[in-house]
C-alpha cells in the first residue's frame, strides 16, 4: 500500500480554499442539476466512507465537556463500538450495519416535532446540534441479548429539547421514530420488525438528567451504524430503547407503540429497564459479557439493577411492580 507523506501531495492537488469553503453551495447547485448522485454517490459534507469506519480520526470532530454523570468503567474499544451493532434496517447480523450503513443519507435531515406540544416546527439537524452545549457522557450500555459496552457518547440532555418545544399538560409520553430510507436500508426488505422502528419513554424518563440526545461518540460525530445523525441514549434501559437516527419526536397523552413490544409483547415490555431479576422468557438476564473484556480468560459479570444507575433512576419507579411492568 502506498501511503503518501504530506510532502508528497502537490499543492495543486489540494482543493483551492475558496472552492473548499463554497463546497456546500457547490453541492446544492449540483443537486439542483441532478448531478450530485453521479458526481458524489453519497453527497454531502458529512457523507461517510464506503470502507467501514473502524478507527477514530476519520469523522468530523464533535467534542463534549466531561460530565460528572459519566461512568468510570473502562471504555470499550472504538473498533468494537462501531462494528458490533444492532441496527436491523441494515441487516440482522451485527457486522452488517458497519458494512451497509455508510449509504444512509444524514443530510439534509430534520426532526419533526408533533403531538401535544406548542412548538411544532420541524428542527433542522444543524439547529439541533446547536441547541445546547455538548457534553461527553460515558455510559454503560446493556443489550437485551446479554452483552454490554461502555461508550463515551457526545450529546446533551433530552430535557433541553423538551423544554424548548414546550409540551402541553396532556403530554405524558414521548414517541420516537427512526428514519426509513428504502434505497439505503437493505434490511427494510425483510419483515423482521414493523417499519419504521418506533420507541418511547414516559415523560419523566425522558426528562431525567441521564437521558440524552446523542450526536457523537469518542469525540466525533456518530458513525452511521451507531445511529447518525441523532439518537437517544437512556443508559438504564436495554439498548433497543435507545432509538437510532431519529426523524420524529411525538408528544403523546397515552403510551406509544414500541417496535419490539409489537413484535413480541411477552418478551419485550414498554419499560425494558435493565433488571437481573427479571429474565427474558428465553434466556437469563442475570449476567452479561462486557465486550472487549469478558471472554476467554474472564467469566461473565453480574448485571446490575437499572444497569448500575439505580441510585439515580429507581425513584422513577417507586410502587411499580417491575416484574409485571418489565
Amino acid at each position: 500500500m502506498l501511503i503518501k507523506k504530506p510532502s508528497d501531495i502537490l499543492s495543486s492537488e489540494i482543493t483551492p480554499r475558496d472552492l473548499y469553503l463554497r463546497r456546500r453551495e457547490f453541492l446544492q447547485q449540483a443537486t439542483a442539476l441532478g448531478l450530485a448522485g453521479t458526481l458524489f454517490p453519497a453527497s454531502g459534507a458529512l457523507a461517510q466512507p464506503a470502507v467501514p469506519v473502524t478507527e477514530p480520526g476519520k469523522l468530523a470532530k464533535l467534542p463534549g465537556k466531561p460530565s460528572p454523570l459519566s461512568a468510570t468503567d473502562k471504555k470499550t474499544p472504538y473498533k468494537d463500538v462501531v462494528t458490533y451493532n444492532n441496527y436491523y434496517e441494515f441487516g440482522t447480523d451485527k457486522a452488517e450495519p458497519a458494512q451497509y450503513a455508510h449509504k444512509l443519507r444524514t443530510r439534509p435531515w430534520s426532526v419533526t416535532i408533533d403531538g401535544e406540544v406548542r412548538n411544532k416546527k420541524p428542527i433542522d439537524i444543524e439547529d439541533l446540534l446547536k441547541l445546547a452545549p455538548m457534553e461527553e457522557r460515558v455510559y454503560r450500555m446493556r443489550c437485551v441479548e446479554g452483552w454490554s459496552m461502555v461508550i463515551p457518547w457526545v450529546g446533551y440532555p433530552m430535557a433541553e429539547l423538551i423544554k424548548r418545544v414546550e409540551p402541553t399538560a396532556k403530554a405524558k409520553f414521548i414517541g420516537f421514530t427512526t428514519a426509513t430510507q428504502p434505497d439505503t436500508m437493505v434490511g427494510l426488505r425483510l419483515p423482521v420488525l414493523e417499519w419504521p422502528y418506533v420507541e418511547g419513554l414516559r415523560m419523566d424518563e425522558a426528562m431525567h438528567p441521564l437521558t440524552i440526545l446523542g450526536f457523537g461518540l469518542y469525540g466525533e460525530v456518530l458513525p452511521n451504524q451507531n445511529g447518525a445523525p441523532v439518537r437517544l441514549v437512556a443508559p438504564w434501559k436495554y439498548g433497543f430503547k435507545s432509538i437510532k437516527s431519529i426523524v420524529r419526536i411525538t408528544f403523546m397523552e397515552s403510551m406509544p407503540k414500541t417496535s419490539w413490544n409489537v413484535a413480541a409483547a411477552h418478551e419485550y415490555g414498554f419499560y425494558s429497564n435493565v433488571n437481573p431479576a427479571v429474565d427474558h422468557p428465553r434466556w437469563s438476564q442475570a449476567t452479561e459479557r462486557r465486550i472487549g473484556e469478558d471472554g476467554f480468560f474472564q467469566p461473565k459479570r453480574k448485571t446490575l439493577l437499572f444497569n448500575g444507575y439505580a441510585d439515580q433512576v429507581a425513584g422513577l419507579y417507586t410502587g411499580m411492580d417491575l416484574k409485571k411492568l418489565f
Binding site: K79, D80, Y84, K94, W147, R289, I291, G292, F296
Partner: peptide, 13 residues
Amino acid sequence: GAFANSLGANPIE
C-alpha cells in the same frame, strides 16, 4: 481466529 483476534467484537458468540 481466536489467536489472530479476528472473530469480531464478541468472539465467544
